[in-house]
Design a protein around this nucleic acid. Structure first.
Length: 246
DNA sequence: ACATTAAATTCGA
DNA sequence: TCGAATTTAATGT
């Protein structure tokens, strides 16, 4: 099975400055969109917010790569990321999209292992992060944070199992439907709501289809009343039906 | 691959 | 800072 890769040659080849060097504090608006901050007590929240940093990454740039030591727990503020899970041999198994509001990598942060994923920005994006130290600190004292991480691990596991099933699907319409449904996950990505900002080209990169084929799949799904196709985005009308499509 | 439409940007007042 | 003109991006076939 083959997948479309992001056209990296479409972006400047220059090596970007390290993320840390480009980081800045978050705006009040950006803090608002971070789901786990709400689970913290005021004092814990103060510590977390002091540690939170944001960076802008360009299309085609990696947020983290397999094998690099873990320094941050990341979340997406704005934009769109593609997460690929590689085997030890470097063969990509699973691709998953990460929409805004998604936090990822908690499994590796927990165990202080090297990253097991490549995270690539499909378009210019704003990524936030807290240090492993702060992640551990919160885990040691906040019940709310523990609940959040546990829920996150559990739902993410379900997503990967779902992603493997999507890999097996051969019908393009099914693949598009199920991949979209994953991005509309209300628990993992509460910030998405019912309107996902994603272009048909980007869906193509995620699912491994041409933009044209994605377009016809979307038209089919729209005709079925599952979604509405909008300019630069997709609105979900029947998430349940989207999940079980096909 | 091409034609159409939407959005973003530029520019002149 | 407003809106028209232009350019760029996304869509549909």
């Amino acid at each position: 099975m083959s997948y479309a890769a992001f056209p990296v040659d479409a972006v400047p080849a220059a090596v970007p400055a390290p993320l840390r060097a480009r980081s800045r504090a978050l705006t009040a608006d950006e803090l608002q969109g971070i789901p786990w901050l709400r689970t913290l007590r005021a004092d814990e929240r103060t510590v977390a917010e002091a540690d939170l940093r944001a960076v802008q990454v360009e299309a085609g740039e990696f947020v983290c790569r397999v094998g690099r030591p873990v320094t941050y727990w990341f979340g997406l503020i704005d934009g769109l990321l593609k997460m690929s899970n590689d085997t030890a041999l470097g063969v990509p198994i699973t691709f998953t999209g990460v929409p805004p509001g998604g936090w990822f990598g908690e499994g590796t942060v927990l165990k202080h292992e090297p990253y097991r994923y490549n995270i690539l920005a499909l378009r210019r994006s704003v990524v936030a992060g807290i240090t492993v130290q702060t992640f551990d600190w919160l885990l040691d004292r906040s019940i709310g944070f523990n609940r959040f991480v546990m829920m996150q691990l559990n739902e993410r596991l379900g997503q990967f199992i779902g992603a493997r099933e999507i890999d097996r699907l051969t019908q393009p319409d099914q693949r598009v439907a199920r991949s979209l449904a994953a991005l509309f996950h209300p628990v993992l990505y509460p910030g998405v709501g019912d309107l996902l900002r994603i272009t048909q080209q980007e869906i193509g990169y995620l699912v491994g289809l041409s933009r044209q084929r994605v377009n016809v799949a979307l038209q089919h799904l729209q005709a079925g009343g599952l979604i509405r196709v909008e300019y630069g985005g997709v609105r979900v009308l029947d998430l349940d039906a989207l999940r079980r499509y096909g």
